[in-house]
Design a binder for these strands. Structure first.
Ligand SMILES: NC(=O)c1ccc[n+]([C@@H]2O[C@H](COP(=O)([O-])OP(=O)(O)OC[C@H]3O[C@@H](n4cnc5c(N)ncnc54)[C@H](O)[C@@H]3O)[C@@H](O)[C@H]2O)c1
Ligand SMILES: NC(=O)c1ccc[n+]([C@@H]2O[C@H](COP(=O)([O-])OP(=O)(O)OC[C@H]3O[C@@H](n4cnc5c(N)ncnc54)[C@H](O)[C@@H]3O)[C@@H](O)[C@H]2O)c1
Lengths: 214, 214
DNA sequence: ACCATATTGTTACTTTTTTCACAATAATGT
DNA sequence: ACATTATTGTGAAAAAAGTAACAATATGGT
């Protein structure tokens, strides 16, 4: 089984597309339908499925229900996942107020901040003082955290939550962090996303027209 | 010259690392220093540079100043870029209040919203009614927009700004959008980022230990 | 019950991306 | 001035990712 990170991302996309198709009343789906809705080739879909041991029916395609169940199980979405946010500033509180994660079985259950003014134990998603982070992670057996603190505080905050048992981190601070390699860090770097856009737009402008290799 | 999207992202990372090194007082840098700070191989650094025609000095490495100038010029950062935000909700306003883009020469100069309650013409980053979007884009010659509206509104909003002349879009709505292929769309999908994390954390948990292929 | 057809699953192939490896060469020390 | 050494720049090799092709086979029509 030769799997790479992109496979997992595509699996998420397949899942989303399948929910949409299901909502439209479809019961089964073929690799090329799915390919179309996700924007990949049908081969890619079948290859991905084969990598994860997902199989359909010759000529019959895939049963959407069963497929979703399998994908969800692969993605570890059998039970809802509890997530915490470190840093209840702009980004942190936008995330805590966002209701869209629930439908994905992702529940942000608390925030933590060093600034006393941000503490609010009775908000829908409560915000606690940073000192309580470790105990909270251990008590509630949290594995996943979102890091939304200023750059300078990021490594220190990461060390703290790793020591407390966090295994996966979504980091918004625009710098590379270091953690034990049992901890997975995903980076969201909006500066770089925008820069990237600027590059492609400027190139297109300079070269007169058309699609740069992406 | 065989260039791909990852090269550009790495170029941004090199740039950030170079600023850090510069701030620490370094004047020149070798491919392996840079590789270390970015987390790639030294070969990769040199190959990337070679692709963009960036050259250093045998045995002497690269002059940080000159290197930054070249990279910035490639990335189209010679002059500051004006960006607008469509949708002044949670994410949209977090972005409008963020001061970190300035140092990258990225200026968010306005927001637009369909909800009259969100309009505020006198805020540091003013928020205007959606109807004014087209005129604003044309008048100010804006190329880049951030899309931070609810999923259902995203395609419609995209159509509007594309018609007005936008060439690059950073989209936060968790769905695939369609635009003329002169328009570049980058996706920030936080649901998928979190799901990805959940996958790697669950796998690691199941298999006892260690590093899944990423 | 059989045939024609559509669609999967997988292997082989192609393309893309990364790494290796080393000749060329500029800097440094003697 | 010359030898030594460190580091670049790049073409070749390897690895990874994606695509195509097709044999196997279930389905539906007759
Ligand atoms: N807001 C954006 O649009 C945006 C865009 C790109 C990147 N980012 C990055 O995201 C991160 C957060 O940005 P933001 O705009 O939300 O910042 P912010 O200043 O609004 O919020 C940061 C919060 O972290 C808290 N904090 C500081 N040190 C802490 C610590 N050690 N432990 C816990 N909490 C701590 C602060 O009290 C504050 O509430 C930053 O690294 C920033 O560079 C933000
Ligand atoms: N907030 C988050 O943490 C988060 C996380 C992941 C994804 N997202 C995605 O980002 C997008 C924005 O999320 P949010 O939390 O900021 O939502 P929000 O509801 O807080 O803000 C959306 C804003 O868009 C405005 N709007 C609606 N239709 C519009 C239109 N046609 N034109 C202009 N403005 C319009 C609304 O008035 C509102 O102010 C959504 O697609 C959401 O799925 C948000």
């Amino acid at each position: 089984m030769v799997m790479n990170k992109n496979c997992i991302i595509r699996l998420s996309r397949y899942k989303n597309a399948l929910y949409r198709l299901q909502a439209l009343g479809f019961v089964k789906v073929f690799s090329d339908n799915l390919a179309d809705s996700v924007g990949v080739t049908a081969s890619q879909v079948r290859k991905d499925f084969s990598i994860f041991g997902i199989s359909g029916n010759k000529k019959g395609g895939y049963q959407i229900d069963a497929l979703l169940e399998k994908i969800n199980s692969i993605l570890g979405k059998d039970q809802p996942q509890k997530v915490i946010v470190i840093g209840a500033g702009h980004i942190g509180s936008a995330l805590m107020r966002y209701r869209g994660f629930e439908k994905e079985g992702i529940r942000i259950i608390a925030g933590f901040d060093i600034d006393p003014a941000k503490i609010n134990r009775s908000a829908p998603v409560p915000v606690f003082p940073l000192e309580e982070t470790k105990a909270f992670i251990k008590t509630n057996n949290i594995r996943i955290a979102i890091l939304a603190v200023p750059d300078i505080a990021a490594q220190q905050a990461l060390d703290l939550i790793c020591a407390a048992g966090i295994k996966g981190v979504l980091n918004f601070a625009p710098l590379r962090l270091h953690a034990p390699d049992t901890v997975t860090i995903n980076y969201v770097n909006l500066e770089i996303e925008l820069e990237n856009l600027i590059y492609f737009v400027s190139v297109e402008e300079k070269t007169g027209k058309g699609q740069v290799e992406k």
